[in-house]
């Protein structure tokens, strides 16, 4: 059977009741990290993102969402521990949206990026991306197109690096523009990318380890998790 990855793209903001439900499934370390975030918006986004990862994670494993535990790998990629190791997870947030992804059996990376007005996508891609990608960004007919091209490539790179458990910065030169199967340099390995349908003004990409095709199921709500 074809592999599948499930992706949720959710609003980062939530009302007090929903926030309380997300907060209730965080572990003490996550609550402490949330408390350190100075701005309300950042704190709420962190709470929603980590809570939103735990809710479907609990459903997929049959465990209580609050009981799930992750261990960080060499470059910080969190991996579920103990009996839940077969389930792979990833999360990302940007602006007012969060994205979480679950995959059975294959390491997963998801990334969401908003188009940020005022940035300089041409300079950024010339400095950090593969030369062909930098030319593609620079050839956009106006600033909006150049910015969209840049964030799509950035999301694809970051998703692949997250699936690989590598470091983003040394892998920014990895070309991701022409093919969905890409080669991460460190740690070396092939990963298959997919663009995920995203709200206007942002790009979402997901990657699974290995080059075999997979289905992407994208949802925009978690359902009832009281």
């Amino acid at each position: 059977m074809r592999d599948a990855v499930r992706v949720w793209v959710l609003p980062a903001g939530a009302g007090p009741d929903e926030l309380a439900r997300y907060r209730a499934v965080l572990d003490p370390a996550e609550r402490a990290r949330a408390a350190r975030l100075a701005a309300d918006g950042l704190r709420d986004r962190f709470t929603v993102a980590h809570g939103a990862l735990r809710v479907p994670g609990g459903r997929a494993t049959g465990a209580s969402p609050a009981a799930l535990t992750w261990r960080r790998g060499r470059y910080g990629k969190p991996a579920l521990t103990g009996p839940w190791r077969g389930l792979h997870t990833s999360l990302s947030y940007s602006g007012d949206l969060v994205a979480v992804a679950l995959s059975e059996g294959r390491p997963v990376g998801v990334d969401i990026q908003h188009v940020v007005p005022g940035g300089d996508p041409v300079s950024a891609s010339a400095r950090f991306f593969h030369p062909r990608e930098a030319r593609h960004v620079a050839a956009g007919c106006d600033q909006a197109v150049r910015a969209r091209r840049f964030v799509r490539l950035w999301a694809r790179k970051e998703a692949a690096v997250k699936a690989a458990g590598g470091r983003l910065w040394p892998n920014l030169g990895m070309p991701v523009d022409r093919a969905d199967v890409v080669e991460c340099a460190d740690p070396a390995g092939r990963h298959r990318l997919a663009d995920v349908v995203a709200p206007q003004g942002c790009a979402v990409a997901v990657a699974l380890a290995g080059q075999e095709p997979y289905a992407v199921e994208c949802r925009t709500d978690l359902g009832d998790f009281r």
């Binding site: 701005a39 300079s123 470091r167 983003l168």
Partner: peptide, 29 residues
Amino acid sequence: GLSSSLGLELLLALEDELEIQIDVEELDE
């Protein structure tokens, strides 16, 4: 709440202002 994309903007701005090139090969979180 610094994100990777804001981190990239930060490094680009720093490189411009200080007229340096930062080697990102060993950079991580």
